[in-house]
């Protein structure tokens, strides 16, 4: 780079640019926070859903599945699993409960987590809550 463009000019772009975009990011964050109540389905956030999120986390479900497209890519998307299972929490509970402890020979299988009935109901309620978040029409179809 030529002498016309000096190191102090470069430094000023770094400081000025960074500061400007940090402030812009904070402003957008502030606006997002104000918009979220219309989209994030917080009305459905019951104690059962909160427990379900904890069950979800404490069994590291994200280590195989995606949820709203984020997580691991080894097992199906679960953001819309409530809808894929015919709008049924009972079907979700039945699936998790029915996993064979020793797996399925040669195939991927979900572990048997031995969850209590309360935990099973809670994680299903959590997935129902997640399926009703406004995700701008994602995923493209029911297969996730």
């Amino acid at each position: 780079m030529s002498e016309v463009f000096t190191k102090s000019m470069a430094r000023n772009i770094y400081y000025g640019g960074s500061l400007f975009f940090i402030l812009l990011f904070l402003a957008l964050t502030f606006d997002t926070d104000g918009t979220l109540p219309k989209r994030d389905n917080r009305a459905a956030l019951t104690e059962q859903v909160a427990l379900g999120k904890k069950v979800w986390e404490e069994n590291d479900c994200i280590g195989c599945h995606t949820l709203l497209g984020e997580g691991a890519y080894f097992a199906p998307e679960l953001g819309n699993v409530y809808k894929r299972f015919g709008n049924s929490t009972a079907a979700i509970v039945g699936f998790i409960k029915g996993r064979p402890p020793e797996g399925i020979p040669g195939r991927r299988s979900m572990p048997q987590f031995n969850l209590s009935d309360e935990e099973l109901e809670a994680v299903a309620a959590f997935l129902k809550y997640a399926s009703e978040i406004d995700t701008a029409n994602w995923p493209p179809n029911i297969q996730g």
Binding site: K7, S18, F21, L24, D40, T135, W138
Partner: peptide, 24 residues
């Protein structure tokens, strides 16, 4: 300086590419 300036100028708001489909 120029490289890291461009990093932060593009990358901070670039966080937005994770905010398409998560309810934001």
């Amino acid at each position: 300086y120029v490289i890291i300036a461009m990093t932060l100028i593009t990358g901070i708001i670039g966080t937005g590419h994770h905010y398409y489909w998560i309810g934001t």
